[in-house]
C-alpha cells in the first residue's frame, strides 16, 4: 500500500492557480525531495501533506484512506524556524510528545512515568547529537542544534511520514553538511517516509531517493496566475545516493 497517493490534485486561491494536475505516490521508506523555482507550490504541496491545506480538486490519500484534515502525530514536521518550544529545555522539548500521549488531562508526567520517557529521550538526544545540551533552553542553542532538537521532538513519536520545510535553509553550509549526515543516518535506521522541500538542488540529490521537480508547464504572460505548477520531473536518485555513501 502506498503511504501517500495524490490523484490529479489542483489547488487555487480565488483566481490564482497554484497547483494543477499533480499526480504522485510514495511508499514507506522513500525520501522525496521537492525542488523548483520559488512560488511554484512545493510548500503548498507540503502543507497539504501536513493536513493544514486541502486540495481544491482531486483526491489525496494517506495509507489508502481519505487524507486527515488536521495535523496528527502520524506525520511529523520540521520547519525552518520556530519548531521548538521556547519555554522548555531540550529534554523537556523531546518528552512532550510522550507526555501528550500518556497524560491526556495535564499533558505532563511525574515520577516513574517521567523517568521512563526521559530514558527514551536520552537515547534520541544521543542519536541527534544533543546529549550534552539536555538542560539548555532553545534560545541558548545554535541554529543547527535547534533543528536537531526539532527532529528529535518528531522522532520520539515515530511518525510514518516526516515532513521537512527547508529545514537547513537558514544554516551555514558546514552545519548543513553535518545535518545531511544526521538525516541520512536516521533515515537509514528507521526507514520512514520523508518529504523535504528545499531550494538547494545538490542537497535534493544528495538526500533524496527521489527528486520531484515542480514547475509550470504553460505560462501566460498577461495572466501569470492562469496556470499552476505540476510535477514536471520525477527523478530516481537512489543510485547516486548509495554511491556517494
Amino acid at each position: 500500500m502506498n503511504l501517500v497517493e495524490a490523484h490529479n490534485i489542483w489547488k487555487s486561491y480565488g483566481d490564482t492557480i497554484v497547483l494543477e494536475h499533480v499526480n504522485f505516490s510514495m511508499k514507506d521508506g522513500e525520501f522525496c525531495t521537492l525542488v523548483g523555482p520559488s512560488g511554484c507550490g512545493k510548500t503548498t504541496f507540503l502543507r497539504m501533506l501536513l493536513g493544514i491545506e486541502v486540495p481544491s480538486k482531486g483526491k489525496l490519500l494517506f495509507e489508502g484512506k481519505d487524507y486527515p484534515q488536521e495535523p496528527s502525530d502520524e506525520r511529523g514536521i520540521v520547519f525552518q524556524r520556530y519548531s521548538t518550544l521556547s519555554h522548555l529545555n531540550v529534554i523537556d522539548n523531546v518528552i512532550i510528545g510522550m507526555e501528550f500521549e500518556q497524560s491526556q488531562l495535564f499533558g505532563k508526567l511525574f515520577g516513574k512515568a517521567k523517568k521512563r520517557v526521559y530514558e527514551k529521550a536520552e537515547e534520541i538526544l544521543c542519536a541527534v547529537g544533543l546529549q550534552d545540551a539536555k538542560y539548555q533552553y532553545p534560545h541558548e542553542l545554535s541554529g543547527g542544534m535547534k533543528q536537531r532538537l526539532s527532529i528529535a521532538q518528531s522522532l520520539i513519536k515515530q511518525p510514518k511520514l516526516l515532513l521537512l520545510d527547508e529545514p537547513f535553509g537558514a544554516l551555514d553550509p558546514g552545519i548543513s553538511i553535518d545535518m545531511h549526515e544526521l538525516l541520512l543516518d536516521i533515515h537509514a535506521k528507521l526507514n520512514f517516509g520523508v518529504v523535504m522541500v528545499t531550494h538547494d538542488i545538490s542537497e535534493a540529490f544528495k538526500l533524496g531517493t527521489r527528486v520531484l521537480v515542480f514547475d509550470k508547464v504553460k505560462t501566460d504572460k498577461e495572466y501569470p496566475n492562469r496556470f499552476g505548477s505540476t510535477i514536471v520531473n520525477d527523478i530516481d536518485s537512489s543510485k547516486g545516493r548509495k554511491n556517494e555513501k
Binding site: I77, F79, E99, F100, G107
Partner: peptide
C-alpha cells in the same frame, strides 16, 4: 509553526492550552 508542531506531537486543544 509552534502550534502546528505540537499538533504533530499529538497534543489536543486542552493540552495545547495547558502546556
Amino acid at each position: 509553526e509552534q502550534i502546528i508542531k505540537v499538533q504533530t506531537l499529538g497534543a489536543n486543544t486542552w493540552q495545547i492550552i495547558t502546556r
